[in-house]
């Protein structure tokens, strides 16, 4: 029998419930007038979660179709793009990183290189003026760029 995704999820959730419960038990509670304390609520939730997860293991529901190989690669690419966008955001500044991130996302979502770069350039500059000048949001100018300016 193939292990249904929901059964696996159920097992993971029981693990999570156990983790939540163990963590809750380890909380050290200073003296207080609160008869319940910070432990009881997460403990109750853990028990509820474990019970619901058991139902899921016994009676798994339906899932959406999982992405195939090609799609998984693209998903990963999108995530990597967003991660790099985040990593460089404060270092290279808003305009450069946005240009790169937008161009890359555009490309992944099916634009040609030319269109992707054009979208990147336009969107980075237009949104910079919109956010920084019209709305007065302070955007990162880039730690690595600042000394060069």
């Amino acid at each position: 029998m193939r292990l249904a995704a929901d059964r696996l999820l159920g097992i993971v959730l029981i693990g999570l419930a156990a983790f939540v419960a163990v963590q809750a038990m380890q909380l050290e509670v200073p003296f207080s007038y609160d008869p319940v304390g910070p432990r009881a609520f997460p403990l109750g939730l853990a028990i509820l979660l474990a019970a619901l997860a058991s139902v899921l293991i016994v009676k798994p529901g339906t899932n959406e179709a999982w992405p195939g190989r090609q799609l998984s690669v693209k998903l990963l690419l999108v995530l990597v793009t967003l991660l790099i966008y985040a990593l460089l955001f404060t270092n290279l500044g808003f305009i450069i990183t946005s240009l790169l991130a937008v161009a890359s996302l555009s490309r992944i979502f099916g634009a040609s290189w030319g269109k992707a770069l054009l979208t990147g350039g336009l969107m980075a500059v237009v949104s910079y003026f919109l956010f920084a000048h019209a709305l007065g949001i302070s955007l990162p100018s880039g730690y690595w760029i600042e000394p060069l300016l």
Binding site: S106, F109, A116, T119, G120, M123
Partner: peptide, 11 residues
């Protein structure tokens, strides 16, 4: 097109 929409949401 999605290739304009998605980067916009990301920004």
């Amino acid at each position: 097109p999605r290739w304009v929409l998605v980067p916009g949401i990301a920004i």
